[in-house]
């Protein structure tokens, strides 16, 4: 009879909740207890440097293009040695949703996400991080990559001396 299964179901439910009542809560008491997020956790964004200490960011605008909430803005420029760099670079953390698409889009591994999730300010303008706030002294998650050694435009080294390059050809050579 259905009445018995119904009653059984209700009692079973009550029994289940009773058991949970006696269980240890899973709550983490946040300000006192803190969780250590994994290194791949997506929180505060940083700009890293290459192993030689140069800024990795070449201000290619891919992160700002990938950003679904338009929280990244920048202006690219050129240094005397031909290196492309961000004249200014701004991330509005009051708008950032920490989706990680910028870090995924970055071709030079400059923009990376860190596990520092405690971003909270009294003044919302303090959440506007400028380049000097974002730039760290270190390579972040990749210790070896240097974009300019692989891109053949002759900034980190002379033309033709990059990682996968032959020496520049002699245009006037007649050898077949």
């Amino acid at each position: 009879m259905t009445i018995f299964t119904d009653i059984k179901a209700i009692l079973l439910g009550l029994w289940t909740t009773w058991k949970h009542m006696l269980r240890r809560p899973v709550t983490i008491q946040y300000p006192e207890e803190k969780r250590q997020p994994s290194p791949r956790y997506r929180a505060r964004i940083v700009l890293t440097r290459d192993p030689d200490g140069g800024e990795r960011c070449v201000a290619c605008y891919l992160c700002s293009a990938a950003c679904p909430v338009d929280c990244i803005s920048m202006q690219s420029g050129e240094r005397e040695n031909g290196r492309r760099f961000a004249v200014w670079f701004r991330i509005n953390f009051s708008r950032c949703i920490f989706c990680g698409l910028c870090a995924e889009a970055c071709p030079t591994l400059a923009i990376q996400m860190t596990p520092d999730y405690e971003i909270c300010k009294r003044d919302i303008m303090d959440l506007l991080y400028e380049k000097e706030d974002l730039l760290i002294d270190g390579c972040g998650k990749d210790e070896s990559y240097n974009f300019y050694q692989h891109a053949g435009i002759g900034v980190a080294q002379r033309r033709g001396e990059g990682a996968e390059e032959k020496a520049p050809v002699d245009v006037r050579g007649l050898v077949p």
């Binding site: 949970h20 009542m21 006696l22 899973v26 709550t27 008491q29």
Partner: peptide, 10 residues
């Protein structure tokens, strides 16, 4: 509180 315990919260 009781609802919290039932839901494994505090």
């Amino acid at each position: 509180r009781v609802l919290g315990w039932i839901q494994d919260r505090k």
